[in-house]
Design a protein around this nucleic acid. Structure first.
Lengths: 213, 213
DNA sequence: AGCCAAGGCGAACATTAGTTCTATAAAAAC
DNA sequence: GTTTTTATAGAACTAATGTTCGCCTTGGCT
């Protein structure tokens, strides 16, 4: 593939600049004045070359319909996860309510890229209180990303409310005949077994973030 | 601040969708047909409300001049941290070289907001290999955010190369008279003591990210 | 010289798309 | 009940913007 001319490189840079700074792509005439081109047809000509070369995608008949295909500076979209409360051994975890999804209204949010959530819906965050979950390799002050679900697959890490013990715990969940095995993330520790009617799944753990220093 | 109507929420979602899927913002008439509005003036009316509320910025007289201000609650700027290698018990950690800072060139990057790095310089990421660091509450597959430093304050978590043992470990660092105390993050575990000339600090641990599911 | 392709230029043209004006209906305030 | 506010409709107007076409320059080739 042929190398880009300096003019074409300039156009690409300007498109990227426009997207970052203003949130929308440039028009052909803006490219003309920014890149020192003297006619819209020249810009059109070079844009067609850039499209053939795979740098952009043009959407005909659409104003500013230039899509930048090089995702170099966009490894994933930035999401705002609401931090709706805390999780501790002795209390059920907070359940998301419709208004807690309003990320603007939420007092605190956590910015993560969507490669962490992998497009999941209903994701929220909780702050860990206390050291009761070190067997799940989770420490006081950690942030856990949760997804609001009532069932989990075998082997997934879940937030589980043990009714009899009145205690919430984060463990890997395995449904076995007549019982449920709860396996700590720390493989050196032994699993515990509980009766199915004693567990209530309160969510699935998506990720854990620990900030030190 | 007043809550958004479902229609306004729909408009915001569609603008975001358009930007992600097509790379450019929608026109007013596209919003009209997508959101079931029957007049461009109604869309205009609601867009003005959204602009007053700080959700978007409109650029007058410009086609598709709608900028999504998703940074409204100031979640911090999105940074691209290069993942330059892995960390395992038996080998020194990779040292960043000038070209590994070129995030575009780096094969893999991690998107994090700067509230995680708190503006620190020289931050890079490593992938944890093996289960040798469970005493630091770090598991196989975790991502550790490191800062490239040679000295750390007492109490900070550091990557430490034990020369005699030929082993890297993540521990809290405490310089004591005549010896150095390395304290596991898991407070239930006992510290180890080593001679000062046996330790080489390879970096400071900024944060840990664990992705499950 | 003659030919041809790449690249550039300028203007005209046709849509697209933002703006504005007036009218209407429902809800809220008085 | 009347007025004000909020929200919706439809249409006309105008600016912004993509597209196209003829013409020109330059450089390589025969």
């Amino acid at each position: 593939m042929k190398a880009l001319s300096t003019k074409q490189q300039h156009i690409i840079d300007f498109i990227r600049h426009s997207l970052v700074e203003r949130g929308y792509p440039p028009s052909i005439r803006e490219i003309v004045s920014e890149c020192g081109i003297s006619s819209t047809s020249v810009a059109d000509y070079n844009l067609n070359i850039l499209e053939k070369a795979g740098y952009i995608r043009r959407h005909p008949e659409i104003s500013r319909g230039i899509e930048l295909l090089t995702r170099s500076p966009a490894p994933g979209y930035l999401l705002h996860i609401p931090i709706i409360g805390q999780i501790a051994a002795g209390e059920p975890i907070p359940v998301p309510t419709p208004d807690t999804w309003d990320t603007i209204a939420s007092s605190e949010t956590l910015g993560v890229t969507e490669d962490l959530t992998r497009g999941k819906e209903g994701v929220y965050a909780l702050k860990v209180k206390g050291s009761s979950m070190v067997d799940a390799l989770i420490n006081d002050g950690d942030i856990v990303l949760m997804q609001y679900v009532n069932v989990v697959e075998n082997g997934e890490m879940a937030a589980i409310w043990l009714k009899a013990e009145r205690e919430v715990t984060l463990k890997k969940f395995y449904a076995e005949p007549g019982r449920i095995r709860l396996q700590p993330a720390n493989s050196q520790m032994k699993p515990i077994y509980v009766r199915p009617d004693n567990v209530e799944i309160q969510g699935r753990v998506i990720a854990i973030i620990r900030r030190l220093v």
